[in-house]
Design a protein around this nucleic acid. Sequence first.
DNA 1: CTGTATCCTCCAGGATACTG
DNA 2: CAGTATCCTGGAGGATACAG
Lengths: 133, 133
Amino acid sequence: MQKMINGRPYTETEDGPRFKPCAPNGVLARLGDKWTILVLSHLAIAPGYRLRFSELKHGIEGITQRMLTLTVRNLERDGLLLRHYYPEVPPRVEYELTEMGASMLPALEGFTSWIRDNWPRIEQCRRNYDAEQ
Amino acid sequence: MQKMINGRPYTETEDGPRFKPCAPNGVLARLGDKWTILVLSHLAIAPGYRLRFSELKHGIEGITQRMLTLTVRNLERDGLLLRHYYPEVPPRVEYELTEMGASMLPALEGFTSWIRDNWPRIEQCRRNYDAEQ
DNA sequence: CTGTATCCTCCAGGATACTG
DNA sequence: CAGTATCCTGGAGGATACAG
């Protein structure tokens, strides 16, 4: 069995433990990018976990067509949402959270509550730190 | 009370809910950067939650002096770790997780277990998607 | 040993125009 | 409507040299 620390796999080396960068870093980096969480959040509260491209674009302030396209493509590639294309005129495209996609945000719940609890303190620490420089 | 969906604050607008980008995005972006989680992980398993600069640098493969310095500075600024400077020759600096810092990784546990459970499926989805292009 | 200071490269992400 | 195609800019992050 793979050795684990705080849910992170690692291997022992003569220089100590070496954490594997693969899964957690990659997923967190994706979630931490500028638009992914916003797209997931909007779909998570939509009826049927479904929204049209234009609804997403309209609902997310500041996102460009290009970035929305890239963001949903990545999520589709990861199997977190499905793309439904209706070849009408004008065309209609709906994005739908998969079961896996829908389960992701709730899995973050423990962490988001940690953030909620600690955010004021973090901000205070930043102010203190900046004031000393 | 602030309205919440999946732990994320938002406000209603005439275009639907508008999520606040503040806390979750910022913290996740920080965690998702290239080195932060590795630094936290190493400190989390160190005796006394403490390591010297050189121990961190040696323990994290590929990190440069510059990036390690920047990473620990950011964590110190957020109050997640403390910097202990010993003005000897040669100088010695130890970084120590604060209580808040130590509580962060365990708070991620629910999510890391989600990743563990779903990672194989995500990788499979990526292969399928790429094969179709 | 623990940092700065510089310089450089690459790419995420924005602006804009065009298309089926 | 839902995308591509281009071009552009800022900043993350690496390489290297130097300093206290």
